[in-house]
Design a protein around this nucleic acid. Structure first.
Length: 270
DNA sequence: CTCCGATCCTGATGGC
DNA sequence: TGCCATCAGGATCGGA
């Protein structure tokens, strides 16, 4: 579920409760996530002061002087700040208990997320090959145009590849391609520079609006403050097969490309 | 290097 | 209401 806007919403929700706090204890009820939680992680974290909460792509980083705790929410993960005395439910796998009585609680039914310690997060294997942040620097259109030359894969697949550009998943790839008027199935290498310029702007606009709305809540996403996101109401094509195109009212199409779905307007996107 | 499919796991949904 | 198949927001890995 969580793509860049949901992770950023989470970051903003938890930061006021986490930054500047000292870790009292780590409680791990289930260590079998995407990668197992290290046995000695509790010892590593105890007494550590968390200086700030950063985001890189879909990764959250709880930064300290000695290193960072890297958290990924996978498909079904969420983080909330709760009172440490609150009883955990099923799938509440990890508690980071803080001095003062608050607790950062990770819930992840599908267990595709991870919790890892790194003394040098920028060079950690999971982050090292990540592409640029779509919301930083100038528009990414020229960059994407350059990276796409000679590539035959669908543009949707290029956009959700974190090594090309970080943080974009299937929902926002589909939404940005609609905004830019590009068919998600088109070969990435055969799209013009001008269209990439439009796409770069569409990506930023789409992500910004989604963050402003608090992310997209499909099923059970909640921000760090426990509130749902409201961007779902703003989705123009994702999940809306056969619904009228918001621009021209032609029925939207939905089909599988590779392992996941694309949604698009056959008239507005070519 | 690039691309594609399989894969980890559980819950929601829709058809019958 | 129940059962079963299908699908899901991610990202790595291995093989072609």
């Amino acid at each position: 579920m969580p793509e860049l806007p949901e992770v950023e919403t989470t970051r903003r929700g938890i930061e006021p409760f986490v930054a500047g706090r000292v870790v009292r204890e780590l409680r791990v009820r289930e260590h079998r996530l995407r990668w197992p939680i290290a046995k000695d992680l509790a010892r590593t974290l105890a007494g550590l002061r968390i200086d700030s909460v950063a985001r890189r792509g879909k990764y959250l980083l709880l930064e300290s002087r000695r290193g960072a705790l890297i958290i990924h929410l996978g498909m079904s993960g969420s983080l909330r700040v709760v009172d440490a005395s609150e009883k955990p439910e099923t799938f509440d796998h990890v508690d980071l208990v803080l001095e003062g009585g608050n607790c950062l609680r990770l819930r992840d039914p599908r267990r595709f997320g991870c919790v890892l310690w790194s003394t040098d997060p920028a060079h950690h294997p999971l982050l090292r090959h990540l592409g640029p942040e779509p919301l930083e620097g100038s528009s990414q259109g020229a960059y994407l145009f350059r990276k796409s030359r000679g590539r035959v894969r669908a543009i949707r697949d290029l956009l959700i590849d974190g090594r090309i550009i970080a943080g974009i998943g299937n929902i926002y790839a589909n939404e940005a391609l609609f905004a830019a008027g590009i068919d998600p199935r088109r070969a990435a290498g055969r799209i013009s520079r001008a269209r990439y310029a439009r796409l770069g702007d569409a990506i930023r606009e789409t992500l910004r609006e989604a963050i402003e709305a608090g992310g997209t809540t499909l099923r059970d996403f909640r921000g760090g403050d426990g509130r749902p996101g409201y961007f779902q109401q703003s989705l123009k094509v994702y999940g809306r097969r056969n619904a009228p195109c918001p621009r021209c009212h032609t029925p939207l199409r939905g089909q599988s490309v590779g392992a996941r779905s694309v949604f698009f307007c056959p008239r507005c996107q070519s």
